[in-house]
Design a protein around this nucleic acid. Sequence first.
DNA 1: CACGATACGGAGTGAGCGTTCCGGTTGTCA
DNA 2: TGACAACCGGAACGCTCACTCCGTATCGTG
Lengths: 186, 186
Amino acid sequence: MDKPVLRADARRNRARVLAAAEEAFAADGLSVPLDDIARLAGVGAGTVYRHFPSKEALFQAVVLERLEQFAAEARELADAEDPGAAFYDYFARVIKQASLNRAICEALGATTGSTDKAEIGTEFRANLSALLERAQAAGAVRTDLDGDDLRALIVGALAVERYSPGSHHLVRVLLDGLRTVTGAGS
Amino acid sequence: MDKPVLRADARRNRARVLAAAEEAFAADGLSVPLDDIARLAGVGAGTVYRHFPSKEALFQAVVLERLEQFAAEARELADAEDPGAAFYDYFARVIKQASLNRAICEALGATTGSTDKAEIGTEFRANLSALLERAQAAGAVRTDLDGDDLRALIVGALAVERYSPGSHHLVRVLLDGLRTVTGAGS
DNA sequence: CACGATACGGAGTGAGCGTTCCGGTTGTCA
DNA sequence: TGACAACCGGAACGCTCACTCCGTATCGTG
């Protein structure tokens, strides 16, 4: 890895770019022009490209940072006394936070389905699965779901939340579905 | 309204454009270049614009046509013997069909939230509500939801289906949530 | 302080795409 | 069949935007 120690101004500008990108991507998603990010950061477009090879790379850096925060939160709940409550609290919190962040919505909902995008946020994925499995073992969540399924359901919940924001009872429909015992229904 | 009777070739080309647009939009959504649609239809770009004022208008025409089909299907089920079964059958069918059509996904999921887009597909909206209310009256669906809520849930289900296609059990989670009696849960 | 390396800004480049324009073509009707 | 209006194709235009280039400014070191 190359870490030739950045010059002081370079390090500062890098941080500014990252902060500006986080704000801009969160508000408008990947569609925000890179020049806008540069202006918001108070630097030129060239400077952005010295720190990140492409707009896409900058986007992924921002998203990854956020996903690592989610992963950390999941880690804290990994051995809570009540696995069911921990799971549902976490689920609701992720939905609420992520729905306010368009970058996260777009990154999670990316229709790639597999391959490269699946590797991003591996830790988040793993911690989410751990939370799920513990809740299932405790009988709080139906057992016909795995981590990938849950991820898909999160994407769905995000779509619902984005479509009609603040509808608390809609997410509850999903939560009730998660609680349902396996095998029911026609 | 102006219907000055189109010339025979104009009418034929209009139909070709519509068919090509339906196919292209269904596959790639609004992002497909208009030139591609024109080429697929075997006409020039100018011809497309003689029939539709903008790419957006063409898109909406395609979407509206499809939504009217959905509305018609809902109308047929409006007085089925079993309101609950009618509702769930319809819901599952719409999800399956719409998830294969990226144009519909984008149109329904458009984040406008209200104003103009809300008016598109009014009939679909109304028939959907009718189906829902009948199922609720029959005790087959929880009663803390209205037509708009259901629409949001459809958008969510579409996101799930698009994210991991063919996962039959994921939609079932949502359906189980819809069946759940109101007032349960922490 | 002076000098080389590093980093900066922002104009410039090229590609993609929606939309328009117009010279040529084709349908229609007397 | 002739002539006019309606229609067609696709080149051209204008705009946006990711990305590059290079003359200039700044940092860090001896």
